[in-house]
Design a protein around this nucleic acid. Structure first.
Length: 1018
RNA sequence: GCUCAAGUGGCGGAAUUGGUAGACGCGCUGGAUUCAAAAUCCAGUUCCUUCGGGAGUGUGGGUUCGAUUCCCACCUUGAGUACCA
């Protein structure tokens, strides 16, 4: 029988499942090793070839570690709460739990076909009540904790209450809301229960507060900062506006410094650490207080340049700043209010989009300079952000370009406080070359010294202090959605109460629709059975709410990152009903040794998970405060799609709307367009797209996008064959090297147009693989690669590959494509290479059957030759090094070399062919298992130990020396390795080619590096 | 703008305590086998060349006996991030 991968793979996948081959035990004599993949969101589209890349890499590593004698935990699960299932539910009425279940089944089927060594007995699903019971519990733990700055850790809220009762809050150093007032023990003890709860809420690690949130009207929910990309929602690309709402928040800012410090203790990719560092955004400077003239109010500002304080010529407040209303003079009131209203209307994105327009209004009020006591005019301007620092800045136009531009625009003086610097054209921001002038006690000082001196003087004055500011904001934790974890929270007298662990989980209620209610409440507001009975301790009918023991439950649900922030710990003890995991389990597995996943989670999941881990560590739930020792970002696999620019149409309203990333594009805009072709299945999709100001309009995730087809060369034919495209074609005009589209002609188009224009059409075959760009008035063939995505028609599915070539081929090929961490295009052309390798491998163990088809095992107990052993041990060494370095692509080529060599050597020695199988088995486990069992083993190859490398087989007696002249290799000669330097030199000089190269000249010098190289300098 | 990463054949990519550039695979060319095809096997494949040899790892410099590898400047591409005070 020849290499029949379909049968072999099905056989071993069944064997592994039936025998629980990869089940991990909690506790073992072996050392532990935890290999984890970022669990997938089970989308309706199923897996594409990009998904398994990281899983294959981690699977190879997990299998390798088993061979090396480790007790390996390698689980998998699903991040199964999320928007797409809910959006689908809104459209179809289908319960998200049903779609999610179907999607999970499909994912599982696809994953199983690839032959992963997951321990499926530990599977977790975030949407499963047995899982989210613990998500809810962790929430209550956060609620019952506060952050003690002195101890630099989270502590129980009970301890805080005891402190308040004994000493009040004046001695408490905590991370808390800014508006807490000082109270004494007597005050505290006199507070009503509700007052106490209000105060405590300001200290809890998860708290309810009215904050400015990112509201996405289209999705009907708030979003966290990391869920917004370029000012629009990450999912769907919808606009986001700022809105004040009462929401649950997580006090992640308490952990800013520890999240920063922790990065030094973990082996994660530098770019990922950089982006977390950037996101946390620590900056050192000073907080300075400016008194306002003729007023009791003071303005607090944060500055990184207290050394430039004598350069202040005005102050600027964010329009939303609370003092604005209080200090504006009557004369300026109308103008100020108009400005505030105008900025409130602008979306975040608009505000970001035009940073060049300078706008602002004078409030009429003056602050007093802390040192000179001179009056400083107070302005408001939208270049100052309410959300950063104190929402107010001291403006130093000579030292900051934005202040400079503002001052120029409004004719505010620009005093120069830098020695020997010309500021007539632009501000001077070079700290390193700063020498301060015109600044009283700071004159002549350099940057660092001046900063210190300024802070010292401010402190003396009681009007400022050194301060460290972080960009990291507390994370909003409420979502006005259905398909998420319900909060274990009910309200008594408006104050939130936690439901005790013993009554959890609070399961998602049924609703008849997944939309917000008519009164604007979240979808849970539609549930009839959604009230909490404190006597029965269960969820009851809303109608009972006037009963004294029945209270309303929280209507929001938790965000997508809740479950993913601790799931890795739950795998350690996934079926525990009494605890999130036993202390025994967590102390055995401790943390993830290797975590593999995409870099897109840098500032979301990976930051939140580190935050929760540190919190759980503080509260003695977990033994380590970083959850993953090593992390690798696998690169994306790109699809070959032919894209240049894309045009998106949406007909949500009556008139045609053209949108890009959710932003409406005005019909007045004219766009240059370039045409391009999609190839997908056997369809050729010829599409056009648009650019504006040379920028690509991409709309990843733009759910309403439709693609229209056009190919300029064949436009007439398109019109005749597809009359419905007439308007589109006519909207296009070509001028010189540019193509224009007249959008007014596109009005009234529907979104039902079929883009499947040239299916199986011989005539256009030549265009099938190429993109045609218009360049220099000529069509230039160019193929483009981009992220694989359903909306881009460039998805390759792993199932087809498995059927045609087998899972082992898919695994090898994905590894062979290139370095794991690098993005790389998918191109099936090369897969025959690795598939041939597997066939050669099979042949190495067999000899063909006489006459007919098929073959018979041909492995004997003959002594291996020297060459056999050399090949084997060379391979062991290289493969082991490669796996340890996660250089999987190079070990695949090492296997190819080994098999080629052993085939040439006609090796059939068991002593060589057995260890070779163990080397290959992490990469191509099915074929390895099959050959292993054919060799007479009754146990799975995964129980075999990794071959041990022996140097003695690689010892050589001679070396082929490269002989170079002035560094360029010209020929080689073989010389014994034990030759002395002098003998080598003599042998080289005696060689005829040496004389030929030198052409009679004497060499200036001869460099001999024994065992490496000879270089003749002429 | 800032931060980071990367530029090597027709293609994916190998090679870094500085020591034979292009491993391995794809593709391509020629041959064997076959009635023919598929499959398989063998040989060749960076470029130029007067067949002696010469040039060559984004560009220009530098260090070195020797640079894809180290240093400086620049160009290009990709990713992240941004009125962050």
């Amino acid at each position: 029988m020849s290499y029949d991968f379909n049968t072999i793979e099905a056989k071993w996948q069944k064997y592994w499942a039936d025998n629980g081959t990869f089940k991990a035990e909690n506790g073992s004599d072996k050392p532990k090793y935890y290999v984890l993949d970022m669990f997938p969101y089970p989308s309706g589209a199923g897996l594409h070839v990009g998904h398994p890349l990281g899983y294959i890499a981690s699977d190879i590593y997990a299998r390798y570690k088993r061979h090396k004698g480790f007790n390996v935990l390698h689980p998998q699960g699903y991040d199964s709460f999320g928007l797409p299932a809910e959006q689908y539910a809104i459209q179809t009425g289908q319960h998200p739990a049903i779609t999610t279940k179907e999607n999970i089944a499909r994912y599982r089927e696809q994953l199983d076909k690839i032959g992963f060594s997951f321990d499926w007995s530990r599977e977790v699903k975030t949407s499963d009540p047995t899982f989210y019971k613990w998500t809810q519990w962790i929430f209550t733990e956060l609620f019952n904790s506060w952050y003690d700055t002195d101890a630099d850790k989270a502590r129980s809220i009970d301890e805080l209450e005891k402190i308040f009762a004994k000493d009040g809050n004046s001695k408490v150093n905590a991370v808390c809301d800014e508006d807490v007032t000082i109270f004494s023990a007597e005050d505290w003890n006199g507070f009503s229960s509700k007052e106490k709860q209000e105060v405590l809420l300001k200290y809890r690690l998860t708290y309810l507060a009215e904050t400015e949130v990112n509201w996405c009207p289209e999705l009907g929910t708030v979003l966290a900062n990391d869920e917004i990309v370029n000012g629009v929602s990450e999912r769907g690309g919808y606009p986001v506006i700022r809105k004040k709402m009462t929401q649950w928040s997580m006090r992640i800012s308490a952990y800013a410094q520890r999240l920063l410090d922790g990065l030094n203790t973990i082996d994660w990719p530098q770019p990922l650490k950089d982006s977390q560092t950037n996101w946390i955004g620590r900056s050192e400077g000073a907080q300075v207080e400016f008194r306002i003239q003729n007023s009791e109010f003071r303005i607090e500002v944060f500055t990184t340049r207290p050394d430039t304080i004598f350069g202040v010529s005005f102050m600027t407040l964010a329009p939303e700043h609370e003092l604005v209303q209080k200090i504006t003079t009557p004369e300026q009131k109308a103008e100020v209010e108009a400005y505030i209203e105008a900025t409130a209307k602008r979306s975040e994105r608009d505000r970001m989009a035009d940073v060049k327009t300078i706008s602002g209004v004078f409030t009429g009020a003056y602050a007093e300079h802390p040192f000179t006591k001179e009056p400083v005019p107070i302005w408001i301007g939208d270049y100052v952000l309410a959300g950063y620092g104190t929402g107010a800045v001291m403006s130093v136009p000579c030292g900051d370009q934005r202040d400079y531009d503002f001052a120029k625009h409004f004719n505010i003086p620009i005093p120069n406080i830098f020695e020997g610097v010309d500021i007539s054209e632009e501000a001077f921001a070079d700290k390193d070359n700063t020498i301060i002038a015109n600044s009283d006690f700071l004159n002549g000082l350099k940057y660092k010294k001046a900063v210190k001196t300024a802070i010292y003087e401010l402190e003396k004055l009681g009007q400022g202090e050194g301060k460290i500011n972080y960009r990291l904001r507390d994370a909003v934790f409420s979502r006005q959605r259905y398909w998420g974890e319900p909060f274990p929270v009910y309200y008594v007298d408006g104050m939130p109460q936690m439901i005790d662990l013993k009554h959890l989980p609070i399961a998602l209620p049924e609703v008849e629709k997944y939309l917000p209610t008519e009164t604007g409440e979240p979808p849970l507001g539609r549930a009839d059975i959604w009230a909490w009975d404190t006597e029965k301790n269960e969820v009851v009918d809303n109608n009972l709410i006037n009963h004294t023991t029945v209270f309303p439950l929280e209507l929001n649900t938790m965000p997508g990152w809740a479950g993913s922030s601790y799931y890795f710990n739950r795998y350690m003890d996934p079926h525990n009903e009494d605890e999130v995991f036993s202390q025994e389990a967590i102390n055995y597995w401790k943390d993830v040794d290797l975590y593999i996943g995409g870099s897109e989670h840098a500032t979301g999941h990976l930051l939140y998970a580190r935050f929760w881990q540190k919190f759980l560590f503080d509260r003695d739930v977990v033994p380590v405060d970083e959850f993953a020792k090593k992390l690798i970002n696998q690169g994306m696999i790109l699809g070959t799609s032919a894209f240049v620019y894309r045009l998106s149409f949406s007909d949500r309203s009556d008139s045609l709307e053209i949108t890009h990333s959710g932003k409406r594009i005005s019909e007045k805009d004219r766009f240059e367009i370039k045409n391009f072709i999609h190839k997908y299945d056997n369809k050729i999709l010829v599409s056009y797209g648009l650019i504006k100001n040379e920028k690509l309009f991409d709309f990843e995730g733009g759910g309403q996008a439709n693609y229209f087809a056009l190919f300029l060369e064949v436009r007439k034919e398109i019109v005749s064959r597809f009359p419905q495209l007439k308007n589109i074609v006519e909207a296009i005009s070509i001028t010189s090297s540019k193509i224009n589209v007249d959008i007014s002609l596109l009005k009234g188009l529907t979104n039902e147009l079929d883009v499947d224009l040239f299916r199986n059409d011989e005539k256009y075959k030549e265009y099938q693989d190429a993109t045609f760009l218009l360049k220099d008035n000529k069509y230039v063939v160019s193929r483009e690669v981009e992220k694989m995505s359903k909306s881009k028609y460039n998805v390759v599915n792993p199932d087809g590959v498995c059927e045609q070539y087998g899972a082992d081929s898919l695994r090898l090929y994905e590894m062979f494509l290139g370095p794991l961490e690098q993005a790389k295009p998918w191109n099936t052309a090369g897969i025959t290479g690795v598939h041939n390798f597997l066939k050669k491998l099979w042949k190495l163990y067999h000899s063909p059957l006489e006459g007919g088809q098929g073959d018979v095992l041909n492995v004997s107990d003959t002594e291996p030759t020297k060459d056999n052993l050399k090949t084997l041990h060379k391979t062991i060494k290289k493969v082991e090094e490669d796996i340890e370095n996660f250089s999987f692509n190079t070990s695949v080529s090492t296997f190819m070399i080994a098999v080629n060599e052993l085939t040439a050597q006609k090796c059939n020695s068991r002593a060589v062919l057995e260890p070779l199988l163990v080397l290959i088995s992490p990469y191509a486990p099915h074929i390895a298992e099959e050959l292993w069992s054919k060799l007479g083993h009754s146990e799975s190859i995964s129980t075999a130990s990794f071959p041990v490398f022996e140097q003695k087989h690689l010892v050589e007696s001679a070396k082929i020396y490269p002989i170079s002249f002035n560094g360029k290799t010209r020929f080689t000669m073989e010389l014994p390795l034990d030759l002395s330097k002098e003998d080598i030199e003599a042998a080289v000089m005696a060689h005829e080619k040496t004389q030929q190269q030198l052409a009679g000249r004497e060499p200036k010098k001869v460099i001999v590096v024994p065992g490496k190289i000879v270089n003749v300098v002429g």
